[in-house]
């Protein structure tokens, strides 16, 4: 096959010249070259790249905030509040991820790791005899942020959550 407009050889399977879009002519090729076809796709499949996951950064921010509140807090009350609040926060994550079946394991890991962070902070606080109010405030703040994010962007939060624990 040849395109007479462009004066080029084309594979036998082509009906239209890819350069100019004109119909091809059934003339023998000048060069003895065999076709090496590409897969027949015209739309790129969605990339293997997971979406961005600011949640990882959000978790870092939580940790920093907790540390700050831990240092400046005043009260020694509500010792048990921190893990419970942080746990609730993680639970919200968990419920968020439940929308998507098959992601349970990742969500479980998320839940456990967040509770673990809370416990570590708790132990840290007890060892240093630092007041717990700061942590509780931080936790409450985090929950507020997460609830807000999840309510504002349910689909995006879900996608980011999956991406966070993308294998």
């Amino acid at each position: 096959m040849r395109c007479m407009q462009c004066d080029v050889d084309l594979p036998d399977s082509y009906h239209v010249c890819p350069l100019c879009g004109e119909a091809v002519s059934d003339t023998p090729n000048q060069l003895p070259i065999e076709e090496a076809p590409y897969p027949d796709v015209t739309q790129s499949v969605e990339a293997d790249v997971p979406a961005a996951y600011p949640n990882k950064h959000v978790l870092r921010v939580i940790a920093v905030l907790c540390a700050v509140f831990l240092l400046i807090g005043q009260s020694t009350l509500w010792t048990l509040f921190t893990p419970i609040l942080l746990g609730l926060c993680a639970l919200f994550y968990f419920v968020c991820a439940l929308f998507e079946k098959g992601k349970l394991l990742r969500s479980g890991v998320c839940l456990l790791s967040t509770v673990a962070v809370a416990l570590v902070l708790q132990v840290f606080g007890l060892l240093l005899r630092l007041p717990m109010l700061g942590i509780s405030l931080a936790a409450a703040g985090c929950i507020a942020v997460f609830v807000l994010l999840c309510l504002l962007f349910p689909a995006r939060m879900r996608a980011q959550l999956q991406a966070t624990f993308h294998a």
């Binding site: 080029v8 050889d9 084309l10 594979p11 890819p18 350069l19 000048q30 060069l31 015209t42």
Partner: peptide, 17 residues
């Protein structure tokens, strides 16, 4: 087209055709 006009036979293949 420039190459073919200059006497260089060209065989074209594309992933979109």
């Amino acid at each position: 087209r420039f190459l073919t006009a200059a006497g260089v036979p060209v065989y074209i293949e594309s992933n979109f055709h």
